[in-house]
């Protein structure tokens, strides 16, 4: 046998030693640059990057891995707050999210106007059973009013699920500013689209008025 027996083992040990040494080398490198590798955003970033070496662990809860914008956990409902502090749900209880939800864990109760009996566009109640929800994000994807979105908050462990784990409208609602803060790009894109649609509508209206005027 040309090869010494045990050479493969040694080669393998070499790899582990390299990994072991990298830990300290990386720490020394950071120290010499006068930067902190632990408990800083920069440090966490470096552990996420493609050229990471050394310690890979992110020490939750002291250090938190930032979640990407698209990250989805449990859905939440958005409400708008106007200048007077009044709140207005974005949801119109159109029911599309309840229809598209794969495990059927959304229950929506539509509000009816007490006088006319006609439905008004704000849900009376909105429930999501988060013991069924599969965090798939389809509700958020197909809501035509951008009223339901996926939350980033994953720290929701409880001691008692029967009381806590059916989320009602109150528990689900978040202001639009919260949405803008967790998903800035999406928010900006949607707002731009909305503004555009509104502008187009206004232009159309103006054109119609103009036409009817000239028609006179």
């Amino acid at each position: 046998m040309a090869d010494m027996y045990g050479k493969g083992l040694l080669k393998g040990l070499g790899v582990t030693i390299k990994h072991f040494m990298d830990t300290y080398l990386e720490d020394i490198r950071w120290l010499s640059r006068g930067k902190h590798r632990y408990y800083t955003a920069e440090g966490i970033d470096s552990r996420k990057s493609f050229d990471t070496s050394g310690i890979f662990t992110v020490q939750y809860p002291e250090e938190r891995l930032p979640v990407p914008e698209e990250f989805r956990f449990i859905p939440f409902l958005i409400y708008e707050v106007n200048e007077d502090g009044e709140t207005q749900d974005r949801c119109t209880s159109c029911g599309i999210c309840a229809k598209v939800c794969p495990p059927q864990c959304i229950w929506i109760e539509r509000t009816s106007d007490p006088d006319t009996g006609r439905p008004v566009p704000e849900p009376e109640e909105f429930y999501i059973d988060i013991d069924i929800c599969m965090n798939c994000g389809l509700c958020a994807e197909f809501c035509p009013f951008d009223a339901i979105k996926m939350d980033h908050d994953y720290e929701i462990s409880v001691y008692n699920r029967l009381e806590k784990n059916i989320f009602n409208k109150e528990r689900l609602s978040r202001p639009v500013s919260y949405y803008a803060s967790i998903r800035p790009t999406n928010y900006a894109r949607e707002e731009a689209a909305r503004a555009e649609a509104e502008a187009a509508k206004a232009a159309k209206k103006a054109a119609r008025e103009k036409r009817s005027k000239s028609g006179k």
Binding site: S93, G95, A98, K99, C101, Q104, I106, W107, I108, E109, R110, P119, E125, Y127, D129, I166
Partner: peptide, 10 residues
């Protein structure tokens, strides 16, 4: 049963 009169039950 989910919409419009969604009465949540387990």
């Amino acid at each position: 049963s989910r919409w419009p009169g969604g009465e949540v039950i387990r």
